[in-house]
Amino acid sequence: MLREFATPAPALSLIALVRDAHPVDAALDSVLAQDLRDWEMIVIDAGDSAEASAALAATLARRRDPRLRLLRLEGTGMAVARSRAMAEARGEAMLLLDTRDWLAPGALARLAEALAAAPEAVGAHGGCAVMAEGAAPGDRPLRRQPPGLPAGDLLERLLVGNPFADGGQLLLRREAVQQAGPFLPHLRLGGDWEYWIRLSLLGPWAAVSGAAPVLHLRRRAGQAGHRMARDPASIAPAMLAIWGNPALETRLGRARFLTLQRRAEAEAAWTIGQELMRHGQRAAGLERLRASVAQAPTPRRALLLAAAHALPMLPRALHGPFVAYPG
C-alpha cells in the first residue's frame, strides 16, 4: 500500500506504468527536469520478477526525491494497475506515462496551463514525437505527430478512430476521471480509446499552444497491439463497449449514432486490413480494405486501395502504410 501523506495534495499526479524490463531512466529524468515542480509520480510495478522489482526500487531510490512513489501490483493487467493508481493519486489532474517514453521539456507546464484556461475541459492534449525504439533524449525523431486536433468537443472525432498515440500526451482533470470510472479490464485492445470516448461524453478538451510535442514516444517493434490489430476478434470487445454505451445514442441521436457507427466499423476494417498486409497476409488484407472502402468510400482510401492491389509491382519505398514489418 502507498504511504499516507500529511503534506498538501500536489497539483498533478503522473501515473507511470512499468510494463517490461526497459530502462525507466529517461522517463524519470524527464519528469524531474520539468519546470512545473508541484507533482507526484506513482510508478507502478506490475511485473512478476523479484529481481526486476528490486532494480526498479533501487533506480527510484537513487533519485532521492520524495515525490516519487512506488506501487507494487504484481500480476495485474494494465487497466487494473492504472485504475488502482488513479484511485490512489492525490493530484487535481493526472497524466498516464509509459516508462518507455519521456516528456518534452516544459510539457507539464504547457498542459497544465491549457487545462487551467478551460475550466470546463475534461483534459488537455498536445502532440508527440515518435522516436526509434533504441533512441535516447536528444536523438532526432522519426516523425512528429503535430497537435492537429483542436480544442473543444472531440467526441465524434474520437468515435471514428483514436487520434491520441498515448496517454502521456494527455493531462486529465481529476473530476472527469472520477466521473468516467476505471479502465475496463477485459479490453486487451482499444482500452485507451474507449476511455477517451467516455471522458469526451463528459465535456470538451483543451489544446496546448504551439506545435512543439509534449511527449517523446518510443516506437515499439513487434508490439502486441500490432499483432492483435489484424484480428477482428481483438477489437470487437472495445467496439461493443463503445457502441453499447447507452449515453452515446442519447447524446448523438439515433441517426447520427448509426452514421458514426458505420464510419467507425469501416475505419476498424481498414486498420485490420492494413495490419494484415503488413504481416504478409495480402489476400485477407485486401478483402478487409475493400470492405472498408465499400462501407465508407473516400477518394484517398480508393487510391490507397488501388496501390495495395499493385503492391507486388511497387518498390518497397512506395509501400507507404502497407510496408511489411521487419522480419
Rank of each mutant, 00 (worst) to 15 (best):
A241K: 05
G152W: 09
P163T: 06
P147H: 14
L97K: 03
V43W: 07
S49N: 14
L56S: 12
R263A: 15
Q145W: 13
L276Q: 09
R67Q: 15
V177M: 10
G138R: 10
E92L: 06
L201F: 00
L189N: 02
F5C: 12
L14C: 15
P141S: 03
P23G: 04
A114H: 12
L199I: 07
R251I: 08
R256D: 01
A268K: 02
R198N: 01
A9K: 02
A9Y: 02
A296R: 06
A296P: 04
A79K: 02
P246R: 10
M277F: 08
R282D: 05
H309A: 11
G148H: 03
N162L: 02
F322N: 01
P182F: 14
A291F: 03
N245M: 08
R140D: 07
L28N: 09
G168W: 05
L28I: 15
L71D: 14
R301F: 00
L158C: 06
S53H: 12
G134N: 14
V43M: 03
Q295N: 11
A151P: 00
R69G: 11
A89W: 00
I44Y: 01
R110I: 03
A136K: 15
A241S: 09
L311Y: 12
G152R: 01
R254E: 05
T7K: 11
D25N: 07
A55G: 11
D166Y: 10
Q261R: 13
G191R: 01
V130H: 07
A266H: 02
R174V: 08
A104Q: 14
R316S: 12
R69N: 02
V43N: 06
D48T: 02
A180H: 04
